[in-house]
Amino acid sequence: MREICASKITEVVRKLCIDANCYLPQDIKDRIIQCRKEESWGTAQEILDRIIENYEIADTVPQPICQDTGVACVFLEIGQDVHICGDLQEAVNEGVKQGYRDGYLRKSVVGDPLNRVNTGDNTPAMLYTEIVPGDSLKITVAPKGFGSENMSQIKMLRPSDGVEGVKAFVTKVVEEAGPNPCPPIVVGVGIGGTFDKAAYLAKKALMRSTDERNADPYYADLEQELLEKINALGIGPQGFGGKTTALCVNIEKFPTHIAGLPVAVNINCHVTRHKSEVL
């Protein structure tokens, strides 16, 4: 049994909150540059140039890439042979509080969804834990902006709707979102499981590198086909027209019930942020 101190978790979460918000992952930068090369529409080219300039400024200063520094989604993969000394949830929230304070990040959380008073420190985090084999602890912080989160949807399709139903739904969600989620977007799709599991899969899909396709060739092909369908919609960067509506489509899947075909679509903007550290 390996022991990890809660204070160490606080320290790492603090740093990941700041770094994730200021430094865009390299794979996203590479995708934006590649899409800029392939973009033929003038307005779209100009916007992609500004987007590149923006993340370069954020890198250099450093400062947040986007003012919506999000809710802190914190994913913990906890090795089953790890013992955490101290209160885990408290440790994570303390890390978020320190990171959002020390990193000059925006506090965007209200303590009650209807009575809406800002908590002032961006807590609580959206905390997800998974128990995995081994004795290490992987911490991922993914700040989630709500311009794109608000454009996400879930639908319980019928098994008879099949893959065509999935394609139609994903495309419809992106088309309805139009300019709202700050295209070019990254599209996370969760297929299968239950109502909540599909949404979780969609969110996890957003954290997979854009360089990496689904390990199952059937789903890897589906990711590519959906990307082409979405980029044929013509929405373009910021919705002013163009090819580059999405940078990437990532699908995660899970077994499901004989009667069901849940599909969740979680959208991220071009500021797709996530940073991990393994303890």
Partner: peptide, 25 residues
């Protein structure tokens, strides 16, 4: 341009809260 907060901030030369300070951002 949405998602270009770092770039756009360079064109803002002065900022002053004039109301509803309690609302933070």
């Amino acid at each position: 341009i949405g998602g270009c907060g770092a770039l756009l901030s360079k064109c803002i030369k002065k900022a002053e809260v004039i109301a509803y300070d309690d609302l933070g951002a």
